[in-house]
Amino acid sequence: MSQKPREGKRSQVEYLDARSGEGTAGALEELHKQLLLLPPYRWLCSAIAGSGISPRGLLISTPYIWLLLFFLAPFLIVLKISFSEYAISQPPYTALFELVDDIYVQIKLNLENYQLLFEDDLYWRAYLNSVKIAGISTILTLMVGYPLAYGMTRAPQRWRLALLMLVILPFWTSFLIRVYAWIGILKKEGLLNLLLINLGIIDQPLTIMNTDTAVYIGIIYSYLPFMVLPLYASLEKMDDTLLEAAADLGSRPIKTFWQITFRLSLPGVIAGCFLVFIPALGEFVIPDLLGGSGTLMIGKTLWAEFFSNRDWPLSSAVAVVLLLILVIPIVAFQKLQEKDKAA
């Protein structure tokens, strides 16, 4: 267009003409044409076109399809198994649906697994203990993560990216290896005890390994990035003039922190707590490697039922109840958010 600035109208028509051949996909149009030569792609395209689903609808539905396929379907399978009975067979449980006399479909719902969960206090205690450990470590992670995230947002702009990288960096090493490394630090003749004894702070090595303390340390260490990142995101959005306004209106720095900074970072706090609490509740690796035989957690129980006892139905029931326990805080959280939006 710039070549013929004087003939505004004509060049505009030319421009439209040139565009009309382009189609809507732009640069991907060529790729699309090439792929059309392949029969499966052609079939897929004509199927989509024939079904009346718009490309927009397809795009929007993708995450739902994903959830349906990889979340809801496996859950339904687990749910199904949890209502079956243990059997020495392949697979090791009875079928839920059975064809009787070639006409009737017999559904056999076995509630014994759930009954056992309620009756046997082993499971109850495992659930409660998991909630306790996950809850306490979530609070501890928040206490470690908040100053960290706050410090990062207060750091000079040019450092922030590097600091963020440092938070994410541990993910580049395998989770399992990092948890193993903690054994080397925490064990009786480990680095921590060695350091403390050499510094003269203690003379007898501390027993940290194979206790709940080790589990807390492991969870805090492993899930800290999940806490720091949402906190950082919400703290970075903070408008500093709000703090100045609070100070101007007579609020001391400490009060300003609670009334403004912390209050406005609450969405980040809640998101971070969920991101830590949920995986920590079902955590298996950390209590198994760092915790002792007395560390009762539902993840370990689940593992034992599944792999040691090979009781698939019972362990499925354990998993279903675990999921229900998680659903309660998630629903509460969503209700809270809706209320916040409505207000």
Binding site: D248, L249, G250
Partner: peptide, 8 residues
Amino acid sequence: PYRRPVNM
């Protein structure tokens, strides 16, 4: 600022 009898 929080002790000044001045508002902004």
